[in-house]
């Protein structure tokens, strides 16, 4: 198992990159909605994304986030 320092050293930039991509995707979605309000919808998948972000934003929790994310994304619309 990696040490605490090894985990953050080896993965900080990867995670930064992934977070930027998520932010950019949400911005892209919002701009599309602004451009075509008629097409904007309450898409179940966007709800899942925001619930996933909420799940990840909780710091004091158990170390089973991946499992809980996969269960979240297993929910049927």
């Amino acid at each position: 198992m990696q040490t605490v320092e090894q985990v953050i050293d080896s993965e900080f930039l990867d995670v930064r990159c992934m977070l930027l991509e998520i932010g950019a995707m949400l911005d892209r979605y919002d701009r599309s909605c602004d451009q075509s309000p008629a097409e904007a919808s309450d898409d179940h998948r966007m709800d899942l994304i925001y619930r996933a972000i909420l799940l990840l934003s909780q710091r004091d929790t158990t170390a089973d986030r991946s499992e809980r994310l996969l269960n979240l994304f297993s929910e049927m619309p």
């Binding site: 990867d14 990159c17 991509e21």
Partner: peptide
């Protein structure tokens, strides 16, 4: 990883 991505560039 560390600068811009193709999708963000197009954005």
């Amino acid at each position: 990883i560390t600068k811009c991505s193709p999708k963000r560039a197009v954005d």
